[in-house]
Design a protein around this nucleic acid. Sequence first.
DNA 1: AATGAATGAGTATTCATTCAT
DNA 2: AATGAATGAATACTCATTCAT
Lengths: 223, 223, 223, 223
Amino acid sequence: MSTSELHSRRTNGTSRAILDAARDLFAERGFEGTAVSDIAGVVGVADGAIYKHFPSKRAVLFEVIREFYEPVIDASESSLAGIDGIRNQLRYLIWLQLRAFAEEPEVCRLIIAEARPMEDYYQSEIAELNRRWTSLFVGVVSEGQATGDIRDDFPASLVRDLVYGGIEHIAWAATSGHGSIDPDRMADDLMRLVCEGLQPPPSSEDLDARVSRIEALLAEAER
Amino acid sequence: MSTSELHSRRTNGTSRAILDAARDLFAERGFEGTAVSDIAGVVGVADGAIYKHFPSKRAVLFEVIREFYEPVIDASESSLAGIDGIRNQLRYLIWLQLRAFAEEPEVCRLIIAEARPMEDYYQSEIAELNRRWTSLFVGVVSEGQATGDIRDDFPASLVRDLVYGGIEHIAWAATSGHGSIDPDRMADDLMRLVCEGLQPPPSSEDLDARVSRIEALLAEAER
Amino acid sequence: MSTSELHSRRTNGTSRAILDAARDLFAERGFEGTAVSDIAGVVGVADGAIYKHFPSKRAVLFEVIREFYEPVIDASESSLAGIDGIRNQLRYLIWLQLRAFAEEPEVCRLIIAEARPMEDYYQSEIAELNRRWTSLFVGVVSEGQATGDIRDDFPASLVRDLVYGGIEHIAWAATSGHGSIDPDRMADDLMRLVCEGLQPPPSSEDLDARVSRIEALLAEAER
Amino acid sequence: MSTSELHSRRTNGTSRAILDAARDLFAERGFEGTAVSDIAGVVGVADGAIYKHFPSKRAVLFEVIREFYEPVIDASESSLAGIDGIRNQLRYLIWLQLRAFAEEPEVCRLIIAEARPMEDYYQSEIAELNRRWTSLFVGVVSEGQATGDIRDDFPASLVRDLVYGGIEHIAWAATSGHGSIDPDRMADDLMRLVCEGLQPPPSSEDLDARVSRIEALLAEAER
DNA sequence: AATGAATGAGTATTCATTCAT
DNA sequence: AATGAATGAATACTCATTCAT
């Protein structure tokens, strides 16, 4: 079984072709802007054939999103254990999300702007994937709070909302033509901001120096 | 007279009735789910009458949003100067946004899920309002960076994206039935997180130890 | 009373302005393409004001056409008597029609493409004007047939249909961007064609010559 | 099987039924006066079914016209070569056009009053058919001018405009309830008028006189 | 698996005309 | 003469989905 088969339930045949065509068309024209017959036309089958493979147009969208989402989550779930330190783990998850937006902005747009406003989204498999994905993040934060690496005077879910909401905002603006995403730089900026906060780091040098001086003076005085 | 009517450009007559009916219907059924004739029916006029007051259905939506948005922005623009200190200003803006979501979650949902994905959104008056709104935040952060109250090793826009994206995520989850928003508590949590970051306050152990030593030395010296 | 008042029932005021605006708008956008409120907008009055001056939009169209048509007919009816000879009279009427198309192609288009297909056209004042106009032509032809200047083995109305139908065809093609009309040249061509027909003029020279030769021979032989 | 069906590209099925229903309805109520749902109702299918067979209502009109027009043109293009003499060819074409109007006045009305004023008419297949049709006529006239059977001191297109414009005028009047068309008689009248013109046949008096004189001379010489 | 013809509900927008003021 | 708000009927076209073959 190939790597791709691990993550994709359909490796060839009409189902595969439908998903490929749908992904491209959805990305190009949006979900509403793509007719089922458009998809069928690109695949080269009759309209009705789509319904032998998927129960509805929406199911095609959800599957397109799943195919994009699931491998990332699978990979990160297994990779996370191999990363040392809470900070590194958080950075990894943030970087992964940023890279997804940078590489497949259209699919991300589909998720945010098309799938999420759908009324049955929260009952869908996509929402479940999203929960798996964000719970990875929450898990790391909670663990950090347990070990004391992360302060625990706010819920982990708040951090999740802040970080993922923030990434979406950043990516949305970038996708809308107001810039582009450099995952590495952006991950660094975000990590710094989220970990250390807005307040300037206490210039502990001064304190150090002064205490050191006192110590020196005292030590001398002692003799 | 409701709060929104206080600031509205249309205080009575058919235009007012159309906006009221539209706000309720859009909130209840969404923009696409509401037919122009539904609005006309609630108002009690013929379908065509809507178009004597608004050029299109979309214009009605935009006006509903504007009526909600603009007073908040006007008020905050004038209030901000009277608030002392960068932190207090930031907290005020965050609290304002959270309260808006808490009080009118449906209109907020309209903005995020219906208006923003529209293709001409970025050319609309609503987008302009949004820019005014978020630039208030960016202004405060930038000022803080200039005065040294806020570290300046990342762009102010990153803070804006993080905070507003985060608030949206929080509010969206709350609106979707997974909780409710307490603006005051949430504003405190957010402020703490954003200002101080995830890392635990520096364990002053080291400093303690050294100061203890100083005390010991001094005590000895005294003798 | 000025010349223009002789032909126009409205010389100033709102009625005049309505007709002027309507003529321009109809010419530019067609009858269907022009809304009553467009006309009112150009005039600078409220929509309803139009109906204080004209019973319907169609009545405005008909009046615009009448104002164009009637002076031409009045003038030609009085001029015709002063023109000598059937041929010159026919040429005058043909030239008049061609010039009308050359000078006001848009109003002519209104008549042909907009007014005439209307179902009540044949009961309208415009149709009556048209009958006056074409009966001038029929009158001249009939008179010619009576005097023997025009052969009488076909109805005069056939000549009318041929000539006016032909002119319309020519003018329509010209108006549609396939050329332009030179009334003088075209009138000459049409007169020649209509008067003398397609067949080449009998080369009576030959016959003349031959008869002359015979006469010469006979004369000689006689001697 | 009707004449039109012989030449139709669609001989049965829903497309055929749509065209038949549309032709009748368009003829009866006009193009604008016929709703797509009217056509669907007569055929007995759902409204949407029309659009599986034709891209638009206008396309249905154009196809109705094409079905009427094309067979006539095909037939005349192939028949023309078998007709001897320019005059007979012209008469054939004129007669064909007159007969078309006599037999299917409603379709002719559709062409003239509904299709031709449409703004994209000149880019349509119908305009192309019309060009083929009238170019047949122009071809015969031009050939006649080349062989000397037709005088060449005016463009062949002028003859075309005159004849077809004239026929339309005649037919239009007839269709509007002011008479009916007898293609044979009308073709004769038109041919005479167009070929020989308005002017009376040259009074052969002069020639008579001279020939008489010759006869007298010969008679005398004989003695 | 595939066809592909058929469904049929669903809707924003226009605009000539009216009428109370 | 003028207003201008209100009328309300009228309509082409789309498209996800079904089903007999």
